[in-house]
Design a protein around this nucleic acid. Structure first.
Length: 597
DNA sequence: CAGGCACCTG
DNA sequence: CAGGTGCCTG
């Protein structure tokens, strides 16, 4: 079972449903006038031209403002009236037909105010009294050419200001597009452009057309907005943000992005709008991703109705640890020289926000050795291809999406897919995981072997207070000591037979002594005290020598012919266990006071 | 060092 | 029957 399948199957998170499709363009009132293949480009071009934001394109300076901002305003507003937001968010379910017209009205107001300022100047010159703008225009039409020239010059100044504003706004827009580009990781869609269209993604050509109205006099004037690349994504140069073009095949839930961010139409054309744009984009991305994660988590919880096991919380803690960048990485190799103390996690570490049912039966891949070695790429690597393909984007470092949560979820999904294997649930618990990844406990167990060869389970529990014991952990620890004994007895038998081969009594006696300068001692020390940072207790040397001599005696007397000849020796050795120092009762690796001093 | 198995013991 | 142990194997 591929956990990622969920991202395809979830009805509400269906990536295609988040794409802009021609049929759903009306859901995206801000983008839609920019992207509608049949009308948006023309209307956008008309809009740009008529609203006066690009005054340099007004071929005829004498075009009446009433004509530009009055009569046509309604027409444009009526056009925009088809761009409704079905979700009923933000501006309401049925936005005013004149929403787009507000932008015209704003600009118109600005220009009217400017005209009024010109009027004030004229009034100061005593040329006329208090008059409305309409009267000013009316007077202009009456042929007062001097005033008209001033008015024209005033409008020129306004146009210059607007030009500057436009330049500034364009720069900010470009910056915003860069941000969008980065948010989407400079996505090079794995799918071809054709499939993009099939899925309802924005046709880049349409976007290009939108900005590149062939009959748009802006083109070539140096005032055209950033042009969208008409190239297919595969033709773009990797993730590099194009200098003046941008792919807008965003897979956003447009309703929420554009209607839930209190961004008024047309407002993005201002600097403040740009800031809002960026903020809204971040916020909505976070929300949408969080929703998808919640759905996936919920779906998993529903599909697995069994009760939450007691190990769930423990696993949760384990996962959280893995994902917390503030914590030291967990070594994978037991050969790590310096063991890391692994202390039982406090309840505060646990993330209560995650449904517990998700965490049961989870299995870290490395915990099951019967599995074929599964690659465990970094989680971003796991996410990246998916995010390119579907809904989840690649997250920049400053993305507000809580990455640990996401990683956590993905890790859960990933590991859960392995949990169908018949393993005891104890062995899936966090304590078992922690115990097996902890070289510290192994080291401690080996050092304990210097004192006790046959520790009881209760003894182990006493000396591993930082281990959450269950059946699996206990048997694991017991198994360790079984392996320690095995190695110990093998060496004893080996050196006993070697001594038995000695012809000379003196040499034999020498071989049966286990001084700290002997080969046998070196081997034992190397095995149980590899880092040699612990003083081998004298008692262990004595016990080892007893075992060596017992083996030698049995071999020498021929008792080794008995298949069970070792059992007698085991019986002797098991009685030679000595108390483990109290320092072993502390969590972590014991410190050697002898060597410390 | 771990897994699996058989065997023993309480 | 569960737990512990040893042996074999990888």
């Amino acid at each position: 079972m591929c956990p990622f399948e969920l991202y395809r199957s979830l009805p509400e998170s269906n990536p295609s449903s988040h794409r802009f499709s021609p049929g759903s363009l009306s859901s995206h009132p801000l983008f839609s006038p920019l992207m509608h293949p049949s009308s948006a480009s023309q209307r956008w071009g008309s809009f740009r031209q008529r609203q006066g934001l690009f005054p340099g394109l007004l071929v005829d300076d004498d075009v009446g403002e009433e004509d530009v901002f009055g009569k046509r305003e309604f027409a444009v507003g009526a056009t925009a009236s088809s761009q409704r937001c079905p979700g009923g968010r933000g501006q309401g379910s049925d936005p005013e037909p004149g929403d787009w017209g507000q932008d015209f009205a704003r600009v118109k107001r600005f220009r009217m105010d400017s005209a009024a300022r010109s009027e004030d100047e004229m009034r100061r010159e005593g040329k006329r009294g208090r008059k409305s703008t309409a009267l000013v225009q009316n007077d202009e039409r009456k042929g007062e050419q001097g005033n008209r020239r001033e008015s024209r010059e005033g409008r020129k100044r306004q146009r210059q200001e607007l030009k500057l504003q436009l330049e500034e706004t364009r720069g900010k827009l470009l910056e915003l597009q860069r941000k969008v580009w980065r948010v989407y990781g400079g996505r090079e869609d794995e799918k071809g452009g054709e499939e993009e269209q099939e899925n309802g993604a924005i046709n880049l050509d349409e976007v290009a057309e939108m900005f590149s109205d062939s009959d748009d006099p802006l083109i070539g004037s140096g005032f055209s907005p950033p042009r969208c690349s008409s190239k297919k994504p595969t033709e773009t140069n990797g993730s590099a943000f194009p200098q003046t073009s941008v792919d807008l095949d965003l897979e956003l839930n447009g309703d929420q992005v554009w209607l839930g961010c209190s961004l008024v139409r047309g407002e993005w054309e201002s600097a403040e709008g740009g800031q809002k744009f960026a903020q809204a984009l971040k916020q909505e991305l976070a929300n949408v991703v969080a929703q998808v994660i919640d759905r996936v988590v919920r779906l998993y919880a529903e599909t697995d109705p069994s009760a939450v096991t007691s190990t769930a919380v423990a696993q949760e803690t384990s996962m959280t640890l893995d994902l917390n960048p503030d914590r030291r990485p967990r070594p994978h190799a037991a050969e790590q020289v310096e063991a890391l103390p692994l202390v039982t996690k406090s309840p505060q570490d646990k993330r209560a926000s995650i449904p517990q049912s998700v965490h049961k039966d989870l299995l870290l891949p490395q915990a099951n050795h019967s599995l074929a070695p599964l690659p465990q790429p970094p989680l971003p690597a796991l996410l990246a291809p998916r995010s390119k393909d579907h809904f989840l984007p690649s997250y920049p470092p400053d993305n507000p999406v809580p990455l640990p949560l996401l990683h956590y979820t993905m890790q859960n999904l990933f590991t859960r897919s392995l949990s169908s294997l018949p393993l005891h649930k104890d062995c899936l618990s966090e304590s078992f995981m922690d115990f097996r990844l902890s070289p510290c406990h192994l080291k401690k167990a080996k050092l304990m072997f210097f004192y006790t060869r046959y520790p009881s389970s209760s003894t182990l529990k006493t000396y591993f207070p930082d281990v959450k014991f269950n059946r699996c952990v206990t048997s694991q620890l017991i198994k360790w000591f079984s392996n320690f004994r095995e190695f110990f007895y093998i060496q004893m038998e080996r050196f006993a037979r070697q001594a038995a081969r000695e012809g000379l009594t003196s040499a034999r006696e020498r071989a049966l002594r286990l001084g700290r300068d002997t080969e046998l001692y070196r081997i034992l020390n190397m095995h149980y005290n590899k880092s040699n940072d612990y003083q081998v207790p004298e008692r262990f040397v004595e016990v080892s020598e007893v075992a060596l001599r017992e083996f030698f005696s049995a071999i020498q007397s021929g008792r080794d012919a008995d298949p069970c000849w070792k059992k007698a020796i085991y019986k002797i050795i098991c009685k030679l266990d000595s108390p483990v120092p109290d320092s072993f009762r502390l969590p972590g690796c014991p410190t050697d006071t002898y060597r410390m001093s």
